[in-house]
Amino acid sequence: MAKEELNAFLGSNTVYEGKLVFEGSVHIDGKFTGEITSEGTLVIGKGAVVDGTFNVGELMLSGQLTGDVVAKRRVVVHSSGVLEGRLRTPSLLTEEGGIIEGQITMRAPAQRPEQPKD
C-alpha cells in the first residue's frame, strides 16, 4: 500500500452512522453503519464492527465487516478479519485465519482494445 495521508481515525469508543466520503486514508476502530465512498484506503482495525456499503480504492480488514464491498485496487483480509457479504475486487489477499463468507467477484479492470497503428 502506498503511503497515504491519514485523514480520520474513528477510535474504539466511537459509534458513527451515516455517509463518509474521504481522500487519503481513514482508520476505523469503533462501530460504523452506513456508506463509505473513496478512491483512498479504508483501514478497519481489529476491534471494529462495520456494516453497510463500501466503495473504496483499497480495503485493509482486521475487524468485522458486513455488507457490500467494491474495492478498485485490492482487499487484504488479515488473520483477525471477518467479511460477510458481497465483495468485488481485482486483487484479494487473505491471511491464514481471515474469514470471507459470501460472494466474491474478481475481475481485472477493463482493458482498452489496442488501437491500430497508421
Rank of each mutant, 00 (worst) to 15 (best):
E101A: 14
T94D: 08
T41A: 10
H78D: 09
Q64V: 09
R107K: 14
Q103P: 00
D29H: 04
R88F: 09
V56I: 13
Q115F: 06
A71N: 11
E101V: 11
R107F: 03
S12N: 11
T53I: 12
S91Y: 09
G102R: 02
P116A: 00
V69P: 12
S62F: 01
I100K: 06
G11M: 02
L65I: 06
L42H: 02
E39H: 09
K46I: 09
T53W: 03
S25C: 15
V82L: 11
R112L: 06
Y16F: 15
K72W: 03
G57M: 01
I104R: 06
G67L: 03
E17T: 13
V75L: 04
R112S: 09
H78W: 04
G85T: 09
R88W: 03
Y16L: 14
L6K: 06
G30C: 08
P113Q: 00
G11R: 03
D29F: 04
K117V: 14
G102E: 06
E84G: 12
S62G: 09
I104F: 01
K72R: 15
R73A: 13
F22M: 11
E101P: 00
G11Y: 00
G11T: 01
Q115C: 10
G45H: 05
E23N: 15
R88V: 15
A2V: 10
E114K: 10
A2F: 03
R86L: 12
Q64H: 11
A48S: 07
K46N: 13
V77E: 05
E95H: 14
G98V: 08
T37E: 14
G81P: 10
G30K: 02
G30T: 06
I100A: 05
A108D: 14
G97W: 01
R88M: 13
I99R: 12
E95S: 14
L20Q: 08
E5L: 08
G57I: 01
V43Y: 03
E5I: 09
K3S: 12
A8E: 05
A8D: 07
S38I: 03
G67M: 07
P90K: 04
A48T: 07
L20M: 11
V69W: 01
D29G: 10
G98H: 04
L83G: 07
H78K: 08
G81M: 03
G24T: 06
T105D: 15
A8N: 02
R88H: 13
G67Y: 01
V69T: 07
A48K: 02
M106W: 05
L20P: 10
K19A: 13
G102D: 10
I36W: 02
M1R: 10
R88G: 11
K3W: 01
R107N: 14
V82P: 07
P90C: 09
E5T: 09
P113N: 00
A71R: 04
G81N: 02
A2K: 13
T66Q: 12
I104L: 04
Q115Y: 09
T66H: 08
G30V: 04
I36V: 15
V69N: 08
G47Q: 04
P90W: 04
G24R: 04
S62E: 07
